[in-house]
Design a protein around this nucleic acid. Structure first.
Length: 593
RNA sequence: GCGCCCGUAGCUCAGCUGGAUAGAGCGUUGCCCUCCGAAGGCAAAGGUCAGAAGUUCGAAUCUUCUCGGGCGCGCCA
């Protein structure tokens, strides 16, 4: 078992007990133990952990849940981790562990250090996480933030739980929009050569960010491009513009601490004589999933100039979609969906059985057809989980920040990061479920108070470090280097941690590995953020308790033997805060400034 | 018209994939600094989990329907 999930440990023991009861004839020999769980109770009065084993097994055993619960409880009572077992309610088995068991869990956490909470549940399975994938037609704006941070944190989390994660960015460098980009850049090129280009025509990108592209083209090609017909200069200008846009995007991502392993070009699926899209579609045609046919016009919102025509379609309805989906435009070129199928086929070909795509809310209507396509190209063997991140409403002190898209005035990702800092952006983007709309208030996230969870959690870490700094007087032998400090503290007499508040904090620390696994399996990094907030809150509370009750302070003057275990508790808190924050990609500062 | 997401305290949101008496922050009310960082803490009040039916030992969580809000609905990416 990786890095000590004490809940799994107890679950194993509960299952062992049911096995023994089966051997003794109390339970039938073939038992489905998969539904048995051991979890923390909502109410601390119910003990440390509760299991539903009796209720889950009662029906198969032909016994009353409470009766069976009592039998299991009697067996569990003699376990060396267990202090007390009670049957409650409809058949819950409430387990209270010996304090020594919790204290040992703390020791495990401190010893593990940065590895605490790591897990191997992923069993090294390859997972492809695709996120951001912003069009290379301009700098990233705030709207891209959330998906970027979410995808990055999710990838961190999956890697931490033993999945073989590949972080991927799909560059949409093939559609009409990059030709528009090229024409827009060409104007800036002429401008750079001294021409008066006047206002930017409708339909082209007006932003100033293309001026450097024009300048670079002028420096590199001089007058040469201007003398070519469009068919010749366009590929040159396009390639240059895309390269420069992608370089800018990478810089923006770096500012947010977001990284990718693979940048996959859509154009590479069709250029230089390769036609991966065509090949993919022919394969699907051979399977009967691609055909020529007609679609009914959409109901409700009438499409002007609807033309009923025969077209190439993907049989998405075979996989639960509402209608079949077109693969070719009327001019014969592939639709975006067609190349997206080929792209996901490439993921499958590269060995990914599990794919996760992070998309913006406006792509929600696209999910069914894409999951359908993934199943079609993999013979049903691959799965795709599309995580939709909802809209971010940008506010300043409660007032919406105005953005005008025409005229190219939008708030860029970089502006937001520069104003409030990378940590605040990242934490707040993750302090909400991905499928809920998020209000992001530029004024609030830099506030240094409990209102601001980023600050509150980071402050918890800083406060812990501050305690270590102040402890040197009482404990001069405490190593200053963090890793040796942790090992030194792990050897302390942890049995002296007996106050209910201390044990409660230890229990929360012990919850961390379980939380990490659950968050990873659910693809929900936000759970880490909420957990860290709760942990910091309990830590701050215990700290303040020491104001009224001096015997509960972490540093006890003239009593190194009491101070050491207390510092070990702080070490546990600091370890988990640092670990969780690093999964979120947020700094864990040693002091606040 | 159809599909997807959402609806939990006055406000903003959690709720650990079906568990026990539904939680936190803000706001309101009342408290705690000679004291390891008050950049903090304690306490009180506040709920028909939108509504109805169903599934079962047990539902905020699963199913169906209704109401209310958001997004999307060949040849845009």
């Amino acid at each position: 078992m990786a890095a000590g999930n004490i809940f799994n440990e107890v679950l194993d023991r509960v299952r062992a007990v049911t096995g023994r009861l089966a051997g003794a004839g109390v339970l039938p020999p073939a038992l489905d133990k998969s539904r048995i769980v051991v979890e923390p109770p909502r109410d601390a009065a119910h003990g440390d952990m509760a299991t539903n084993a009796a209720m889950v097994l009662a029906k198969d055993a032909g016994k009353k849940p409470r009766e069976l619960a009592q039998a299991i409880a009697d067996e569990l009572a003699s376990d060396d981790l267990v202090q007390k077992v009670e049957v409650a309610g409809p058949g819950f088995i409430n387990i209270t562990l010996k304090p020594s068991a919790w204290v040992e869990a703390l020791r495990v956490a401190i010893r593990a250090g940065a590895r605490y909470g790591k897990s191997d549940i992923g069993r090294a399975q390859p997972v492809n996480v695709e996120y951001v994938s912003a069009n290379p037609t301009g700098p990233m704006h705030v709207g891209h933030c959330r998906g970027a941070v979410f995808g990055d944190a999710l990838a961190n989390l999956l890697a931490y739980t033993g999945f073989g994660v590949t972080r991927e960015y799909y560059i949409n460098d093939a559609g009409a929009q990059v030709d528009v980009l090229a024409r827009s850049a060409f104007l800036r090129y002429r401008e750079a050569l001294g021409e008066d280009i006047g206002p930017i025509p409708e339909g082209l990108y007006p932003g100033d960010y293309l001026k450097p592209v024009g300048a670079a083209l002028a420096a590199e090609h001089g007058e040469a491009l201007r003398r070519m017909p469009e068919s010749e200069w366009l590929p040159i200008v396009r390639a240059k513009a895309i390269a420069m846009m992608m370089a800018a995007i990478r810089e923006d991502l770096a500012a947010l601490n977001v990284r990718h392993d693979v940048f996959f070009s859509e154009r590479s699926l069709t250029e230089d004589g390769t036609d991966e899209v065509g090949r993919t579609l022919e394969n699907l045609r051979a399977q009967g999933e691609v055909y020529e046919g007609r679609l009914p016009p959409p109901k409700g919102a009438p499409v002007e100039d609807w033309e009923d025509r025969e077209q190439t379609l993907f049989r998405a309805t075979d996989f639960g979609d509402d209608v079949d989906r077109p693969l070719k435009k009327s001019d014969g070129s592939y639709t975006y969906f067609a190349s997206d199928i080929a792209y996901h086929k490439s993921k499958w070909d590269r060995g990914f059985h599990h794919m996760i795509d992070v998309w913006g809310a406006d792509h929600g209507g696209y999910i069914k057809r894409m999951t359908a396509a993934v199943r079609a190209v993999s013979g049903g063997k691959a799965d795709l989980d599309v995580k939709v991140v909802q809209l971010v409403r940008l506010l300043r002190a409660g007032e919406p920040v105005k953005m005008s898209k025409r005229a190219g005035e939008f708030v860029t990702l970089r502006e937001v990061v520069d104003e409030v800092g990378r940590d605040a952006v990242r934490f707040m983007m993750l302090y909400r479920k991905n499928d809920a709309v998020l209000d992001f208030d530029l004024a609030k996230v830099i506030e240094q108070s409990r209102d601001n969870p980023v600050f509150y959690v980071q402050y918890g870490h800083a406060r812990g470090q501050s305690i270590f700094r102040n402890a040197r007087e009482v404990l001069p032998e405490l190593p200053q280097e963090p890793a040796s400090r942790a090992q030194w503290l792990a050897a302390a007499d942890l049995g002296r941690l007996t106050d209910p508040a201390e044990l409660s904090l230890i229990r929360r620390i012990a919850l961390y590995p379980r939380l990490i696994e659950a968050a990873a399996l659910a693809h929900e990094p936000h759970r880490i953020a909420f957990y860290l907030y709760d942990l910091a809150s309990e830590f701050h509370a215990l700290w303040t308790k020491g104001k009224d009750l001096p015997h509960l302070r972490f540093i006890i003057q003239n009593d190194p033997t009491m101070t050491a275990p207390r510092l070990a508790l702080v070490e546990g808190v600091v370890t988990v805060l640092a670990s969780g924050l690093s999964l979120l990609g947020v700094d864990a500062p040693d002091e606040m400034r």
